[in-house]
């Protein structure tokens, strides 16, 4: 996670993400944890219905701030708006 030296605020644009399994989810949750350790956050944007289903299934949805598109998620860091 060398990018953590530059910033601890991330947005994952999931618009091209069609599927995720537990290992992928584990990686994203691990990224979130690292971000939080550096007083940052990891926000998810443009989730497809199938990925949303997996996040709901695994109760991971409640861990993330989720936005309808990436621009909105990036702006939320500036405006402090919650998902």
């Amino acid at each position: 996670m060398s990018c953590l030296k530059e910033t601890s605020q991330f947005v994952f644009d999931c618009s091209s993400l069609d599927f995720i399994d537990s290992s992928g989810l584990g990686t994203i949750v691990s990224c979130l944890r690292k971000s939080l350790e550096h007083n940052g956050d990891l926000k998810l944007a443009s989730l497809g219905p199938q990925v949303t289903m997996v996040l709901e299934l695994t109760k991971a949805k409640r861990l993330f701030a989720i936005f309808s598109d990436a621009a909105e998620a990036v702006n939320s860091y500036v405006t402090g708006r919650k998902a």
């Binding site: 599927f19 399994d21 537990s22 290992s23 199938q50 289903m53 997996v54 299934l57 695994t58």
Partner: peptide
């Protein structure tokens, strides 16, 4: 969604 993950479903 067809899960290919035995840890989940």
């Amino acid at each position: 969604i067809a899960m290919e993950d035995r840890h989940l479903l």
